[in-house]
Write a protein that binds this DNA or RNA. Structure first.
Lengths: 195, 195
DNA sequence: TCCATTACTTAACATAGGTTAATTGTGGAG
DNA sequence: CTCCACAATTAACCTATGTTAAGTAATGGA
Protein backbone atom coordinates (compact mmCIF):
# COMPACT_ATOMS: atom_id res chain seq x y z
CA UNK A 1 0.00 0.00 0.00
CA UNK A 2 3.05 2.22 -0.08
CA UNK A 3 2.87 1.96 -3.86
CA UNK A 4 -0.39 3.90 -3.78
CA UNK A 5 1.28 6.70 -1.84
CA UNK A 6 4.40 6.74 -3.99
CA UNK A 7 2.29 6.96 -7.13
CA UNK A 8 0.28 9.77 -5.55
CA UNK A 9 3.42 11.73 -4.72
CA UNK A 10 4.94 11.30 -8.16
CA UNK A 11 1.72 12.25 -9.89
CA UNK A 12 1.28 15.28 -7.66
CA UNK A 13 4.75 16.74 -8.09
CA UNK A 14 5.06 15.50 -11.67
CA UNK A 15 8.42 13.86 -11.15
CA UNK A 16 9.75 10.45 -10.05
CA UNK A 17 11.14 10.30 -6.54
CA UNK A 18 14.30 8.37 -5.58
CA UNK A 19 13.72 5.12 -3.74
CA UNK A 20 15.70 6.47 -0.78
CA UNK A 21 13.43 9.44 -0.24
CA UNK A 22 10.41 7.21 -0.44
CA UNK A 23 11.79 4.82 2.15
CA UNK A 24 12.74 7.71 4.41
CA UNK A 25 9.26 9.14 4.14
CA UNK A 26 7.50 5.86 4.73
CA UNK A 27 9.51 5.32 7.91
CA UNK A 28 7.68 8.37 9.31
CA UNK A 29 4.27 6.80 8.70
CA UNK A 30 2.55 3.96 10.43
CA UNK A 31 -0.35 1.79 9.43
CA UNK A 32 -3.66 1.89 11.24
CA UNK A 33 -7.00 0.13 10.82
CA UNK A 34 -10.53 1.19 11.60
CA UNK A 35 -13.85 -0.61 11.65
CA UNK A 36 -16.92 0.82 10.02
CA UNK A 37 -18.23 3.77 12.11
CA UNK A 38 -14.96 4.20 14.01
CA UNK A 39 -13.76 7.80 14.39
CA UNK A 40 -10.35 8.67 12.98
CA UNK A 41 -10.65 12.19 14.40
CA UNK A 42 -13.07 13.24 17.15
CA UNK A 43 -14.57 16.69 17.54
CA UNK A 44 -13.32 18.30 20.74
CA UNK A 45 -10.15 16.16 20.85
CA UNK A 46 -6.69 17.04 19.61
CA UNK A 47 -6.04 15.91 16.07
CA UNK A 48 -2.69 14.13 16.09
CA UNK A 49 -2.60 12.71 12.60
CA UNK A 50 -3.35 13.23 8.98
CA UNK A 51 -4.41 10.04 7.21
CA UNK A 52 -3.75 8.64 3.79
CA UNK A 53 -6.47 6.10 2.93
CA UNK A 54 -5.14 2.88 1.40
CA UNK A 55 -8.30 0.75 1.70
CA UNK A 56 -11.93 1.64 2.41
CA UNK A 57 -13.46 5.07 2.74
CA UNK A 58 -14.26 7.76 5.24
CA UNK A 59 -15.67 11.27 5.52
CA UNK A 60 -15.37 14.35 7.67
CA UNK A 61 -18.26 16.41 8.98
CA UNK A 62 -19.15 19.28 11.26
CA UNK A 63 -22.02 19.12 13.75
CA UNK A 64 -24.21 22.21 14.16
CA UNK A 65 -26.04 23.47 17.29
CA UNK A 66 -29.13 21.42 16.43
CA UNK A 67 -27.02 18.28 16.24
CA UNK A 68 -27.22 18.00 12.46
CA UNK A 69 -24.14 16.81 10.54
CA UNK A 70 -22.72 18.53 7.48
CA UNK A 71 -20.29 16.63 5.31
CA UNK A 72 -17.03 18.44 4.59
CA UNK A 73 -15.06 15.88 2.62
CA UNK A 74 -15.12 12.32 1.36
CA UNK A 75 -12.00 10.17 1.11
CA UNK A 76 -11.51 6.97 -0.84
CA UNK A 77 -8.31 5.05 -1.50
CA UNK A 78 -5.56 7.52 -2.44
CA UNK A 79 -7.01 10.50 -0.56
CA UNK A 80 -5.65 12.31 2.50
CA UNK A 81 -8.14 13.25 5.20
CA UNK A 82 -8.06 14.86 8.64
CA UNK A 83 -9.06 18.04 10.47
CA UNK A 84 -6.30 20.25 9.10
CA UNK A 85 -7.38 23.18 11.22
CA UNK A 86 -6.87 21.21 14.42
CA UNK A 87 -3.83 19.35 13.10
CA UNK A 88 -1.87 22.50 12.29
CA UNK A 89 -3.11 24.76 15.09
CA UNK A 90 -2.88 22.06 17.78
CA UNK A 91 -6.31 23.13 19.02
CA UNK A 92 -9.38 20.97 19.56
CA UNK A 93 -10.93 19.44 16.46
CA UNK A 94 -14.01 21.11 15.04
CA UNK A 95 -14.69 18.27 12.63
CA UNK A 96 -15.15 14.53 13.05
CA UNK A 97 -13.64 12.00 10.65
CA UNK A 98 -15.40 8.64 10.53
CA UNK A 99 -14.91 5.40 8.61
CA UNK A 100 -17.71 4.38 6.25
CA UNK A 101 -16.29 0.89 5.80
CA UNK A 102 -13.50 -1.15 7.35
CA UNK A 103 -10.61 1.14 6.47
CA UNK A 104 -6.82 1.03 6.35
CA UNK A 105 -4.77 4.20 6.50
CA UNK A 106 -1.22 5.46 6.79
CA UNK A 107 -0.98 7.91 9.68
CA UNK A 108 1.44 10.84 9.88
CA UNK A 109 1.77 12.92 13.02
CA UNK A 110 2.72 16.58 13.32
CA UNK A 111 6.35 16.09 14.36
CA UNK A 112 6.99 13.66 11.54
CA UNK A 113 5.20 15.94 9.13
CA UNK A 114 7.46 18.83 10.18
CA UNK A 115 10.47 16.59 9.96
CA UNK A 116 9.57 15.49 6.44
CA UNK A 117 9.04 19.09 5.32
CA UNK A 118 12.17 20.42 7.01
CA UNK A 119 14.60 17.71 5.96
CA UNK A 120 13.21 16.82 2.54
CA UNK A 121 12.20 19.93 0.58
CA UNK A 122 10.39 17.70 -1.87
CA UNK A 123 7.72 17.23 0.77
CA UNK A 124 7.10 20.95 1.08
CA UNK A 125 6.53 20.79 -2.63
CA UNK A 126 4.34 17.69 -2.42
CA UNK A 127 2.13 19.10 0.29
CA UNK A 128 2.09 22.53 -1.30
CA UNK A 129 0.72 21.16 -4.56
CA UNK A 130 -1.61 18.77 -2.78
CA UNK A 131 -3.17 21.57 -0.75
CA UNK A 132 -3.04 23.92 -3.72
CA UNK A 133 -5.23 21.51 -5.69
CA UNK A 134 -7.52 20.96 -2.74
CA UNK A 135 -7.84 24.72 -2.29
CA UNK A 136 -8.72 25.32 -5.92
CA UNK A 137 -11.36 22.59 -5.84
CA UNK A 138 -12.80 23.84 -2.57
CA UNK A 139 -13.01 27.41 -3.80
CA UNK A 140 -14.93 26.20 -6.81
CA UNK A 141 -17.26 24.17 -4.63
CA UNK A 142 -18.00 27.21 -2.48
CA UNK A 143 -18.51 29.37 -5.56
CA UNK A 144 -21.07 26.87 -6.83
CA UNK A 145 -22.76 26.57 -3.44
CA UNK A 146 -23.38 30.32 -3.57
CA UNK A 147 -24.27 30.60 -7.24
CA UNK A 148 -26.07 27.46 -8.37
CA UNK A 149 -29.21 25.71 -7.13
CA UNK A 150 -29.23 22.26 -5.59
CA UNK A 151 -30.16 20.44 -8.78
CA UNK A 152 -27.27 22.00 -10.68
CA UNK A 153 -24.86 21.15 -7.87
CA UNK A 154 -26.07 17.55 -7.77
CA UNK A 155 -25.64 17.10 -11.51
CA UNK A 156 -22.15 18.56 -11.43
CA UNK A 157 -21.21 16.45 -8.44
CA UNK A 158 -22.43 13.27 -10.17
CA UNK A 159 -20.31 14.06 -13.21
CA UNK A 160 -17.24 14.99 -11.23
CA UNK A 161 -17.40 12.19 -8.67
CA UNK A 162 -19.21 9.16 -10.08
CA UNK A 163 -17.16 7.06 -7.65
CA UNK A 164 -18.60 8.94 -4.66
CA UNK A 165 -22.13 8.53 -6.05
CA UNK A 166 -21.51 4.77 -6.10
CA UNK A 167 -20.03 4.30 -2.68
CA UNK A 168 -21.44 6.99 -0.42
CA UNK A 169 -24.94 6.85 1.09
CA UNK A 170 -27.36 9.44 -0.26
CA UNK A 171 -27.96 11.21 3.02
CA UNK A 172 -24.24 12.02 3.13
CA UNK A 173 -24.23 13.22 -0.47
CA UNK A 174 -27.20 15.45 0.40
CA UNK A 175 -25.33 16.89 3.36
CA UNK A 176 -22.20 17.39 1.23
CA UNK A 177 -24.32 19.38 -1.23
CA UNK A 178 -25.80 21.44 1.59
CA UNK A 179 -29.33 20.05 1.35
CA UNK A 180 -31.50 17.50 3.23
CA UNK A 181 -32.31 13.95 2.10
CA UNK A 182 -35.92 14.75 1.11
CA UNK A 183 -34.64 17.52 -1.17
CA UNK A 184 -32.15 15.22 -2.83
CA UNK A 185 -34.91 12.66 -3.37
CA UNK A 186 -37.05 15.32 -5.03
CA UNK A 187 -34.16 16.33 -7.28
CA UNK A 188 -33.39 12.75 -8.30
CA UNK A 189 -37.05 12.15 -9.04
CA UNK A 190 -37.25 15.30 -11.19
CA UNK A 191 -34.11 14.35 -13.09
CA UNK A 192 -35.44 10.83 -13.70
CA UNK A 193 -38.73 12.25 -15.02
CA UNK A 194 -37.01 14.70 -17.35
CA UNK A 195 -35.32 11.90 -19.27
CA UNK B 1 6.32 48.10 0.00
CA UNK B 2 8.67 45.14 -0.06
CA UNK B 3 8.74 45.40 3.72
CA UNK B 4 5.10 44.37 3.82
CA UNK B 5 5.90 41.25 1.80
CA UNK B 6 9.01 40.40 3.81
CA UNK B 7 7.06 40.71 7.05
CA UNK B 8 4.32 38.52 5.58
CA UNK B 9 6.79 35.82 4.61
CA UNK B 10 8.55 35.83 7.97
CA UNK B 11 5.27 35.73 9.87
CA UNK B 12 3.97 32.93 7.67
CA UNK B 13 6.97 30.61 7.93
CA UNK B 14 7.75 31.71 11.51
CA UNK B 15 11.40 32.42 10.80
CA UNK B 16 13.52 35.35 9.63
CA UNK B 17 14.73 35.18 6.04
CA UNK B 18 18.21 36.23 4.92
CA UNK B 19 18.40 39.55 3.06
CA UNK B 20 19.82 37.75 0.03
CA UNK B 21 16.82 35.47 -0.38
CA UNK B 22 14.51 38.41 -0.03
CA UNK B 23 16.30 40.38 -2.71
CA UNK B 24 16.38 37.36 -5.00
CA UNK B 25 12.65 36.88 -4.57
CA UNK B 26 11.77 40.51 -5.08
CA UNK B 27 13.69 40.54 -8.35
CA UNK B 28 11.08 38.07 -9.64
CA UNK B 29 8.23 40.45 -8.87
CA UNK B 30 7.20 43.66 -10.53
CA UNK B 31 5.02 46.49 -9.41
CA UNK B 32 1.70 47.27 -11.04
CA UNK B 33 -1.02 49.82 -10.46
CA UNK B 34 -4.76 49.70 -11.05
CA UNK B 35 -7.49 52.29 -10.96
CA UNK B 36 -10.75 51.69 -9.18
CA UNK B 37 -12.84 49.16 -11.17
CA UNK B 38 -9.89 47.92 -13.24
CA UNK B 39 -9.69 44.15 -13.64
CA UNK B 40 -6.56 42.42 -12.41
CA UNK B 41 -7.84 39.12 -13.80
CA UNK B 42 -10.58 38.73 -16.39
CA UNK B 43 -12.94 35.80 -16.71
CA UNK B 44 -12.29 33.94 -19.96
CA UNK B 45 -8.70 35.18 -20.25
CA UNK B 46 -5.51 33.46 -19.18
CA UNK B 47 -4.42 34.35 -15.67
CA UNK B 48 -0.74 35.19 -15.87
CA UNK B 49 -0.11 36.54 -12.38
CA UNK B 50 -0.78 36.20 -8.74
CA UNK B 51 -0.89 39.55 -6.96
CA UNK B 52 0.27 40.71 -3.56
CA UNK B 53 -1.65 43.85 -2.57
CA UNK B 54 0.53 46.61 -1.14
CA UNK B 55 -1.97 49.47 -1.27
CA UNK B 56 -5.73 49.57 -1.82
CA UNK B 57 -8.12 46.64 -2.04
CA UNK B 58 -9.72 44.26 -4.49
CA UNK B 59 -11.98 41.23 -4.67
CA UNK B 60 -12.60 38.18 -6.81
CA UNK B 61 -15.98 36.95 -7.97
CA UNK B 62 -17.71 34.42 -10.18
CA UNK B 63 -20.56 35.34 -12.52
CA UNK B 64 -23.49 32.91 -12.81
CA UNK B 65 -25.72 32.19 -15.83
CA UNK B 66 -28.12 34.95 -14.82
CA UNK B 67 -25.27 37.44 -14.76
CA UNK B 68 -25.19 37.75 -10.98
CA UNK B 69 -21.83 38.09 -9.23
CA UNK B 70 -20.76 36.06 -6.23
CA UNK B 71 -17.81 37.25 -4.20
CA UNK B 72 -15.11 34.64 -3.63
CA UNK B 73 -12.44 36.59 -1.77
CA UNK B 74 -11.52 40.05 -0.53
CA UNK B 75 -7.94 41.32 -0.45
CA UNK B 76 -6.56 44.28 1.47
CA UNK B 77 -2.94 45.31 1.93
CA UNK B 78 -0.88 42.21 2.75
CA UNK B 79 -3.14 39.71 0.96
CA UNK B 80 -2.45 37.62 -2.14
CA UNK B 81 -5.23 37.37 -4.72
CA UNK B 82 -5.74 35.82 -8.15
CA UNK B 83 -7.61 33.03 -9.90
CA UNK B 84 -5.44 30.18 -8.66
CA UNK B 85 -7.34 27.63 -10.71
CA UNK B 86 -6.50 29.43 -13.93
CA UNK B 87 -3.03 30.44 -12.79
CA UNK B 88 -1.91 26.89 -12.05
CA UNK B 89 -3.82 25.05 -14.76
CA UNK B 90 -3.05 27.60 -17.50
CA UNK B 91 -6.69 27.45 -18.54
CA UNK B 92 -9.12 30.34 -18.94
CA UNK B 93 -10.06 32.20 -15.79
CA UNK B 94 -13.40 31.35 -14.21
CA UNK B 95 -13.21 34.27 -11.79
CA UNK B 96 -12.70 38.00 -12.21
CA UNK B 97 -10.48 40.03 -9.89
CA UNK B 98 -11.30 43.74 -9.70
CA UNK B 99 -9.89 46.73 -7.82
CA UNK B 100 -12.23 48.42 -5.34
CA UNK B 101 -9.91 51.43 -4.97
CA UNK B 102 -6.79 52.71 -6.69
CA UNK B 103 -4.55 49.73 -5.94
CA UNK B 104 -0.86 48.85 -6.00
CA UNK B 105 0.29 45.27 -6.23
CA UNK B 106 3.37 43.15 -6.70
CA UNK B 107 2.82 40.73 -9.57
CA UNK B 108 4.39 37.28 -9.88
CA UNK B 109 4.04 35.22 -13.03
CA UNK B 110 3.99 31.45 -13.33
CA UNK B 111 7.55 30.97 -14.58
CA UNK B 112 8.95 33.15 -11.80
CA UNK B 113 6.74 31.38 -9.30
CA UNK B 114 8.12 28.02 -10.45
CA UNK B 115 11.62 29.38 -10.37
CA UNK B 116 11.21 30.67 -6.82
CA UNK B 117 9.83 27.34 -5.64
CA UNK B 118 12.41 25.23 -7.49
CA UNK B 119 15.52 27.22 -6.58
CA UNK B 120 14.59 28.45 -3.09
CA UNK B 121 12.89 25.67 -1.09
CA UNK B 122 11.84 28.27 1.45
CA UNK B 123 9.24 29.44 -1.06
CA UNK B 124 7.71 26.02 -1.33
CA UNK B 125 7.37 26.28 2.43
CA UNK B 126 6.05 29.83 2.30
CA UNK B 127 3.40 29.07 -0.30
CA UNK B 128 2.57 25.75 1.32
CA UNK B 129 1.78 27.42 4.64
CA UNK B 130 0.03 30.33 2.97
CA UNK B 131 -2.28 28.04 1.03
CA UNK B 132 -2.61 25.71 3.99
CA UNK B 133 -4.01 28.60 6.08
CA UNK B 134 -6.24 29.73 3.24
CA UNK B 135 -7.52 26.18 2.82
CA UNK B 136 -8.34 25.80 6.50
CA UNK B 137 -10.20 29.14 6.53
CA UNK B 138 -12.07 28.31 3.34
CA UNK B 139 -13.12 24.91 4.59
CA UNK B 140 -14.51 26.55 7.70
CA UNK B 141 -16.36 29.13 5.62
CA UNK B 142 -17.97 26.39 3.53
CA UNK B 143 -18.85 24.42 6.65
CA UNK B 144 -20.64 27.48 8.03
CA UNK B 145 -22.34 28.22 4.72
CA UNK B 146 -23.90 24.75 4.92
CA UNK B 147 -24.65 24.69 8.62
CA UNK B 148 -25.53 28.19 9.83
CA UNK B 149 -28.17 30.69 8.74
CA UNK B 150 -27.37 34.04 7.16
CA UNK B 151 -27.64 36.04 10.39
CA UNK B 152 -25.16 33.76 12.15
CA UNK B 153 -22.78 33.98 9.22
CA UNK B 154 -22.99 37.76 9.15
CA UNK B 155 -22.29 38.07 12.87
CA UNK B 156 -19.30 35.76 12.64
CA UNK B 157 -17.99 37.57 9.58
CA UNK B 158 -18.27 40.95 11.35
CA UNK B 159 -16.29 39.62 14.29
CA UNK B 160 -13.65 37.94 12.17
CA UNK B 161 -13.21 40.71 9.60
CA UNK B 162 -14.09 44.10 11.08
CA UNK B 163 -11.71 45.61 8.52
CA UNK B 164 -13.72 44.17 5.63
CA UNK B 165 -16.96 45.48 7.17
CA UNK B 166 -15.39 48.94 7.17
CA UNK B 167 -14.00 49.02 3.69
CA UNK B 168 -16.15 46.80 1.52
CA UNK B 169 -19.57 47.84 0.18
CA UNK B 170 -22.50 45.96 1.65
CA UNK B 171 -23.69 44.42 -1.57
CA UNK B 172 -20.33 42.68 -1.86
CA UNK B 173 -20.47 41.51 1.74
CA UNK B 174 -23.94 40.14 1.03
CA UNK B 175 -22.65 38.28 -2.00
CA UNK B 176 -19.66 36.98 -0.02
CA UNK B 177 -22.09 35.58 2.55
CA UNK B 178 -24.19 33.98 -0.18
CA UNK B 179 -27.22 36.24 0.22
CA UNK B 180 -28.76 39.26 -1.57
CA UNK B 181 -28.57 42.89 -0.43
CA UNK B 182 -32.21 43.05 0.74
CA UNK B 183 -31.58 40.03 2.98
CA UNK B 184 -28.50 41.60 4.50
CA UNK B 185 -30.45 44.80 5.13
CA UNK B 186 -33.14 42.80 6.93
CA UNK B 187 -30.54 41.02 9.03
CA UNK B 188 -28.81 44.26 10.00
CA UNK B 189 -32.14 45.80 10.91
CA UNK B 190 -33.05 42.82 13.10
CA UNK B 191 -29.68 42.90 14.83
CA UNK B 192 -30.02 46.65 15.48
CA UNK B 193 -33.50 46.11 16.97
CA UNK B 194 -32.38 43.30 19.24
CA UNK B 195 -29.94 45.57 21.05
C1' DT C 1 -22.61 73.08 -5.81
C1' DC C 2 -25.47 70.30 -8.29
C1' DC C 3 -26.57 66.47 -10.83
C1' DA C 4 -26.11 61.66 -11.99
C1' DT C 5 -25.01 57.53 -10.46
C1' DT C 6 -24.58 54.04 -7.34
C1' DA C 7 -25.60 52.04 -2.87
C1' DC C 8 -28.84 50.96 0.65
C1' DT C 9 -33.41 50.17 2.60
C1' DT C 10 -38.06 48.73 2.65
C1' DA C 11 -42.26 46.20 1.61
C1' DA C 12 -45.20 42.73 -0.83
C1' DC C 13 -45.02 38.73 -2.77
C1' DA C 14 -42.77 34.25 -4.71
C1' DT C 15 -40.13 30.08 -4.20
C1' DA C 16 -36.44 26.70 -3.17
C1' DG C 17 -35.57 23.99 0.11
C1' DG C 18 -36.55 22.63 5.15
C1' DT C 19 -39.48 20.02 8.43
C1' DT C 20 -42.10 16.34 9.93
C1' DA C 21 -43.96 12.10 9.74
C1' DA C 22 -45.67 8.24 7.52
C1' DT C 23 -44.35 4.58 4.03
C1' DT C 24 -41.55 1.77 1.56
C1' DG C 25 -37.19 -0.31 0.45
C1' DT C 26 -32.90 -2.81 1.72
C1' DG C 27 -28.89 -5.11 3.47
C1' DG C 28 -26.61 -7.39 7.13
C1' DA C 29 -26.77 -10.31 11.68
C1' DG C 30 -28.37 -14.23 13.50
C1' DC D 1 -34.59 -16.98 5.50
C1' DT D 2 -36.29 -13.68 8.38
C1' DC D 3 -35.99 -9.95 11.08
C1' DC D 4 -34.48 -5.50 12.32
C1' DA D 5 -32.33 -1.34 11.90
C1' DC D 6 -31.41 1.96 8.96
C1' DA D 7 -31.77 4.37 4.36
C1' DA D 8 -34.64 6.38 0.86
C1' DT D 9 -38.94 8.20 -0.71
C1' DT D 10 -43.09 10.77 -0.57
C1' DA D 11 -46.48 14.29 0.69
C1' DA D 12 -48.30 18.32 3.25
C1' DC D 13 -47.01 22.11 5.14
C1' DC D 14 -43.56 25.88 6.71
C1' DT D 15 -39.82 29.36 6.57
C1' DA D 16 -35.69 31.74 5.20
C1' DT D 17 -34.26 33.96 1.63
C1' DG D 18 -35.04 35.57 -3.21
C1' DT D 19 -37.41 38.84 -6.37
C1' DT D 20 -39.07 43.05 -7.80
C1' DA D 21 -39.80 47.57 -7.52
C1' DA D 22 -40.03 51.79 -5.35
C1' DG D 23 -38.09 55.16 -2.37
C1' DT D 24 -34.15 57.23 0.13
C1' DA D 25 -29.43 58.19 1.03
C1' DA D 26 -24.80 58.65 -0.20
C1' DT D 27 -20.99 59.53 -3.38
C1' DG D 28 -18.28 61.36 -6.98
C1' DG D 29 -17.46 63.99 -11.23
C1' DA D 30 -18.30 68.24 -13.93
Amino acid sequence: MLDLLKANIERTISQPIPEGICTAFSSLLFEKQFDKKDNLVEEGQLCKYIYFVTKGSCYSYITDEKGDSHTIQFALEGYWISDLYAFFSEKKSIYTVAALEPTKVLALNREQFQKACDTMPIFDKYFRILIQNAFVALQYRLAKTNSADAEHRYREFSQLHPDFIQRMPQYLIASYLGIKPPSLSRIRKDLANKK
